[in-house]
């Protein structure tokens, strides 16, 4: 089958260098390459669709060429116009860098707020805390080796739920948490604006006296760190006796 010759066609765009701002609309096309020569900007790398796109058509004062047999033809012309210029090409992102607008000193939009959401995260982090309930812990702790309990601290939250902090965590059912400073975040989750965690923590917990435990639904509760007591079978038995 014959090859579609249009696939091999190469296009060039020429424009005055002073008009580079007009190229803003096509800057996002990363397949383009840019070169400068004698006050002109040359662009190449367009495919057929791009050269016919509105974005290109809307650029004023441009000249479009297509390549045929080593010559540049004006688009829609049958006569060769010039030779292919011999140029040094750079990717368009580098050739046309984005500039930030200068700082607006009259801007007072400091009331704006940002919402921090907890979202699933790819980063793996070690679980160091667990939220479970008395029943699950009871099953395990009755026969647990002491060495597993020694590194752990625990607290009963509302007469039913239990927070255990320390590692290694126990082999029982529950929600596990990983630690960021004094935040306990559910494992497999992180803030979408994760680099703001530190600021958020300063806001919520200026003195690190509390653990702040986050749920997947963006709610949190805090618990004073010195309320956590070493976990042992006797501590468990005495506590649960008091609750019942």
């Amino acid at each position: 089958m014959a090859e579609d010759i249009t696939n091999d066609l190469n296009y060039y765009l020429e424009i005055e260098e002073s008009r580079r701002v007009d190229l803003g609309t096509i800057r996002a096309w990363q397949n383009l390459k840019v070169a400068t020569a004698k006050g002109k900007l040359w662009l190449t790398g367009f495919d057929r669709e791009q050269i016919n796109a509105v974005e290109v058509k809307s650029i004023p004062y441009k000249t479009l060429y297509k390549v045929q047999k080593g010559k540049l033809y004006l688009l829609d012309s049958l006569l060769p116009d010039r030779n292919i210029p011999n140029l040094l090409w750079t990717p368009i992102e580098r050739a046309l860098p984005v500039e930030l607008p200068s700082l607006n000193h009259n801007y007072f939009g400091v009331e704006e707020q940002m919402k921090m959401d907890i979202v699933p995260s790819e980063n793996e982090s070690e679980a160091i805390a667990m939220l479970t309930n008395i029943q699950s812990l009871k099953q395990y702790i009755k026969t647990a080796p002491k060495v597993r309990l020694n590194p752990l601290k625990w607290v009963v939250l509302n007469g039913e739920d239990i927070l255990i902090v320390g590692k290694p965590i126990l082999p029982i059912q529950g929600i596990t948490y990983w630690r960021y400073n004094n935040f306990l975040l559910p494992t497999g989750f992180d803030f979408d604006l994760y680099s703001l965690k530190q600021n958020l923590e300063k806001r919520l917990n200026p003195n690190p006296t509390h653990w702040i435990i986050w749920n997947e639904d963006n709610n949190y509760f805090d618990i004073e760190k010195n309320k956590l007591k070493p976990l042992s079978l006797s501590s468990f038995r005495q506590t649960t006796e008091k609750i019942q």
Binding site: I141, K142, T143, A144, S232, L233, S234, R237, Q238
Partner: peptide, 9 residues
């Protein structure tokens, strides 16, 4: 009695 609080099984 105090000690067996910490004994398993």
């Amino acid at each position: 009695q105090k000690e067996i609080l910490d004994y398993p099984y």
